[in-house]
Amino acid sequence: MIHKNLILHRKHQKPIVWDAFFNKNGEQKPLVVFCHGYKGFKDWGPWNLVAEQFSKANLFFVKFNFSHNGGTAENPIDFPDLEAFAENNYSKELNDLGDLLNFLMSEKNELLKEINPNNVTLIGHSRGGGISILKASNDTRIKKLITWASVSNFSDRTATIGNLKAWREEGVKYVLNSRTQQQMPHNYQFYEDFKTHEKQLNIEAATKKIKIPQLIIHGIDDSSVSFKEAEALHKWNINSQLIGIENSNHVFNGQHPWNNLALPAALETVVSSSISFIKTPKKS
């Protein structure tokens, strides 16, 4: 069963567009929530094929667009709303994830009977990995955590978006999206919000707090987020598991659009390893 482009409406906030992939059998299934990365979206490349794999493993798989990722309810693919993208920040993404989890495990969710609210896994790719780590470190509903090519530090990335003095004076900085050729705007509020919440957005501190099973998967040759960042995450939580993927880039050799009916080999390994991790009983 596939439900596409469901909409979570929120008072005085932008809606969240989400998908659910699951076997409709009335059986409570582990809930898996996937968080996309920077300049990402829920329908990027092979993510739908990934979702189908989790569904076939009898998991309830949810993927969604962060509310300010640049997509809209009418067009959730790519970035038709650059004004929203400009107003995105880490705090908004954490709030989005919290609101979606609250909804999924509430009576308002008509699909609740298919979900085991006591078996919840977060998966985050790239920047979404950082968001997932922060959420998992302080939300007891999360029972397992998986990151794919995750960042280990928001501080350096936030400061290197551009010259801070010019950014503050001009109010906006732009980053080129090489695929769409769009100049992606970042309003200065992004930096201000980070500095205001810098302590709460510290991925190292969050990782050191994690007591639940944590799986870290990263391409050894990732040129966008160095494998050293995965090693840092693993060092900060010695009880975590680290899997290095050979001959893999930042998106595990996927691309957008993805017209193949099969996953790239690297991503297939990522998915199978993740499903195995979720289905392995937690050690008492």
Rank of each mutant, 00 (worst) to 15 (best):
L8M: 11
H9E: 15
R10P: 10
R10Q: 14
R10C: 10
K11F: 10
I16E: 02
I16S: 02
W18T: 01
D19M: 00
F22A: 11
N23G: 01
N25Y: 05
L31N: 09
L31I: 12
F34A: 06
H36P: 06
H36M: 02
K39E: 05
D43G: 04
D43V: 03
N48I: 08
L49Y: 06
L49K: 11
Q53W: 01
Q53G: 10
K56A: 13
A57Q: 13
F61M: 08
K63P: 00
K63T: 13
K63E: 01
F64A: 01
F66H: 15
H68M: 05
N69L: 03
N69M: 04
G70V: 09
G70E: 07
I77M: 02
I77A: 07
D78Q: 12
D78K: 12
E83M: 00
A86I: 10
A86F: 09
A86G: 15
N89K: 06
K92A: 06
L94S: 09
L94M: 14
N95V: 06
N102K: 13
N102E: 14
L104A: 07
E110G: 05
E110P: 11
E110I: 12
L112Y: 09
N118V: 00
N118F: 10
N118A: 08
N119R: 14
T121Q: 09
L122M: 08
I123A: 03
R127T: 12
G129C: 05
G130E: 02
S132E: 09
S132D: 10
K135G: 00
A136E: 03
S137D: 04
N138A: 02
R141T: 07
I142P: 11
K144R: 15
K144W: 09
K144F: 09
L145T: 13
T147Q: 01
T147K: 02
S150K: 02
V151E: 07
N153L: 01
F154E: 09
S155L: 06
D156C: 00
R157L: 12
T158E: 06
A159R: 15
R168V: 01
R168D: 09
E169Q: 15
K173D: 02
L176H: 08
L176E: 12
N177F: 04
R179W: 05
R179F: 07
Q182N: 12
M184W: 11
H186D: 01
H186F: 15
N187K: 13
Y188C: 02
D193N: 12
K199Q: 13
Q200K: 14
E204A: 14
E204M: 04
A205Y: 07
A205D: 11
T207W: 02
I210P: 13
I210F: 12
I212L: 13
I217E: 03
D221T: 15
S224I: 09
V225S: 10
K228Y: 04
E231R: 06
I238E: 14
I243P: 05
N247I: 05
N249M: 04
H250G: 09
V251K: 02
F252C: 04
H256M: 03
H256V: 04
H256I: 07
H256L: 03
H256R: 04
P257R: 06
N259R: 14
N259L: 14
N260F: 14
A262P: 00
P264K: 05
A265Q: 13
V271Y: 07
V271W: 08
S273I: 11
S273D: 14
I275H: 08
I275T: 11
S276L: 10
F277S: 04
I278R: 03
T280I: 08
T280G: 03
P281K: 09
K282W: 00
S284W: 06
